[in-house]
């Protein structure tokens, strides 16, 4: 009996060890400027990776490439077993909505939609909107009382939490944060990071977070340091 379950178990173990992101000589040039020098990077599934560096060090470029928002100039890029270079524009869009959740530094909500509608928009692009589920997601991030407010009526921390709810609504495998706490005070930053940690424990997504805040980077499992498009240092937290 137990032997019948054995292959399943082994496969799960194998998958756990699998890398969700694998880059090989990943390069991005903007004209003559080389934003990302050839980079080899592996991120195992379930890891929380912090990317640190000065502004212009190529950390946002890396995040955009991994999130399917931008295309590399050279090299190979596999995310979740998909070769992103082989996807066309609509394919990348599909990849983004099904696989990735993105949180930006500026909150980037649609100004004329309420909090719940902003979450539903992500559902709509993914498949079909489901208001109950969107409401539940906002309750999970502690905004159950702010459902019908438009972004202008929310504080910075609240807006960022709406973005988190939107990012996780389609159960992504990969959550990308581009300095998600860059505009927040210390108290809100801690709140947001705690929230992300909680959600990750429940949903088991991989996190790649770009930041220049050492404290924020400390929430992750591993930190890589980029400088001028080159990986200069790597630090394992736990």
């Amino acid at each position: 009996m137990s032997s019948a379950f054995c292959p399943v178990k082994r496969e799960r173990l194998l998958r756990m060890a699998e890398n969700i992101i694998e880059t090989n000589g990943l390069t991005r040039n903007y004209g003559d400027i080389c934003a990302l020098k050839p980079l080899d990077l592996q991120i195992p599934e379930g890891e929380w990776l912090s990317v640190m560096g000065h502004s212009g060090s190529g950390k946002s470029t890396l995040m955009n490439l991994v999130g399917g928002l931008d295309r590399p100039s050279a090299g190979s890029l596999q995310v979740g077993g998909k070769d992103l270079l082989a996807l066309n524009e609509d394919g990348l869009a599909r990849f983004r909505r099904e696989f990735v959740g993105i949180i930006f530094q500026q909150h980037h909500l649609v100004p004329y939609l309420t909090a719940v509608e902003n979450v539903m928009m992500a559902q709509y692009f993914h498949s079909v909107p489901d208001e109950a589920e969107a409401r539940h997601a906002l309750e999970r991030v502690g905004l159950g009382h702010r459902l019908k407010n438009r972004p202008g009526e929310l504080s910075g921390g609240e807006q960022q939490r709406v973005c988190i709810a939107r990012a996780i609504i389609n159960s992504p495998k990969l959550l990308l944060g581009d300095e998600p706490t860059g505009n927040l005070d210390h108290k809100s930053t801690v709140m947001v990071m705690e929230l992300l940690k909680e959600l990750r424990a429940e949903e088991r997504f991989t996190v790649v977070m770009v930041t220049h805040n050492q404290e924020v980077a400390g929430w992750g499992d591993r930190t890589i340091y980029l400088d001028d498009g080159v990986l200069v240092r790597e630090e394992r937290m736990r």
């Binding site: 489901d130 609504i169 159960s171």
Partner: peptide, 14 residues
């Protein structure tokens, strides 16, 4: 169980 999966199935049917 997963909301996103559920919605995807419904969307495919629609």
């Amino acid at each position: 169980r997963q909301g996103a999966q559920r919605r995807k199935l419904i969307f495919a049917a629609i």
